[in-house]
Amino acid sequence: MKKIVKDKLPSLWEQLSSQATLFLPVEQDGVVNFAPWEEGDSVNLEALNTVVPPKNVVFPQTETYMRFKVENDKLHIEPFEQNGPYVLFGARPCDVAGITLLDKVFLQEPEDGLYSRRRREGTVISVACNEPDAACFCTSFELEPGMAPGADIMVWDMGDYLLWKAQSEKGEKLTGSVENLLQEAAEEEQKAAMELKERVTAKEAAAAQEMGWDPSGVKETLKDMFDSDIWEQFFRRCLGCGICTYICPTCHCFDIQDYSKDQEGGRFRCWDSCMFADFTLMGSGENPRPTRKERVRQRFMHKLCYYPSNFGLYACVGCGRCVRKCPVNLDIAQVIKEVGGVKSGSE
């Protein structure tokens, strides 16, 4: 393992950004989000979770993929792609897990070329969490705050320095390219990091357990709960906004739209949300999910029942974003607890 002293981070940013677009958690007006790093940005590696997860790096909120021109009834179509290597530095382990869940959707047959290209072009560096907060519950999904198996490089914040471990070929390559800024980590330093990791995981798991945020069994229980009264108690307070889905690292729904001036323009895909009224609204005016009740149910059923039935895993990584940001506290942790409660009640 390697390490980098924190004083050298500015040089690291410079060096990385000279070879690729460098996405870092950048603070602006009190909000920390991933953004392409520019000289003078205030990088915040302490903030636990960015408001918007780094899914917008691999799956941008708006992505033009085609240009067109209509001329005398003739149609010209050209693919449009913004290519380029990038480095994503500072994704939390839950963020990385979120990306691997997106992988399942976009990389399954037929593979989504736009997405897979972005995945190939990027190197993901994850920073371990030393202090998960009250809304975090990644351990409920068998994730570790101190470890992101899907990251190319894993980094632990040890105070004055970051311990640095390449976990993939891409990671090795990037490590090699910034070797001048790294040092070998001593045996004790590695041991200290691994101990820290174990401590944090144990503490976090205990906290989540105490809250009753245990999803085991929920995917089975929910199979019979489509018509359950439980949705009644949740949906009324929902504002029907898009916060919970837009800031969720696992939500992958998108819309496709054209823009144009005269007869020339582009086509893009952009995030969409099952919480919006027009998500399933058909041209005929019919809507299979006409009220917030069906829409709220869809969100939780998708994450906790449908996705697991297709891919074996929950579509939630316990990042706590919806717990922190839903303006009316309609979050997945409460649903897990309630549904889990249904199960133990009937046993």
Partner: peptide, 16 residues
């Protein structure tokens, strides 16, 4: 422009 550049278009401001 700086403030609005952060907008994620969730429409929560309208819906609340």
């Amino acid at each position: 422009a700086r403030q609005f550049s952060r907008c994620i278009r969730c429409f929560a401001c309208r819906n609340a």
